[in-house]
Amino acid sequence: MNDFSDAFATALSLILNLDQDLAEIVLLSLRVSLTAVLVAAVIGLPLGAALALFRFPGRSAAIVIVNALMGLPPVVVGLVVYLLLSRSGPLGPLGLLFSPAAMIIAQAVLVTPIVAALTRQVVEDLWAEYEEQLRSLGATPARAIGTLLWDGRFSLVTAVLAGFGRASAEVGAVMIVGGNIAHVTRVMTTTIALEVSKGDLALALGLGIILIALSLAVNGAASLIRETARRYQGALA
């Protein structure tokens, strides 16, 4: 128990003193995960909306696959991206392995299905309400997708934040494709894994506290956005 309180005290002082190493790791984590989520949103939002709107052969199967991909094991994604990016892999010549770019790719692969699957659900519900009106007004399918994404914006923020939660908490994929290289690809989760095995609990715990605080902040923001929407737009009523 003393170990824990000692580690906790040291962790707090690291955070409060804005320890250089700690700050660097946190900032890299944010950069990687936020970029990955941005990429996932750009792909996942229209993809999810298209799945909601269009009827095509194999649609049910496509939805099942996207939903299943939400639970993709990070280490498997890491492995596949590793194979693609390794020197002898098809994308080897890009030289991205063990760089933040590789970590962004891996996390984007993990997060895109989450954004797409949640978007599909939100947009499908909205489409059920809007379909006749939008068709009556003469909206093309492309225009309808834009309208539905915009009108579902408050719910979709939650979908994107869920993706961010997944990306920032994940360790397996970034460990494999990033390599956990100090000052290059070391992020919060990989540092925690490493420091715990080295016995430096303070840094690990400090990062753990920041991760949890981040997760709280993200979910707090999501709930605030939904509340605001309910109050001012009647959007979720």
Binding site: E129, Q133, D151, Q233
Partner: peptide
């Protein structure tokens, strides 16, 4: 179709 419009029993209001 460009010169017709329809109003539904339950008005469909966009969230704006």
């Amino acid at each position: 179709s460009a010169h017709q419009a329809m109003v539904f029993q339950r008005p469909v209001m966009l969230r704006r």
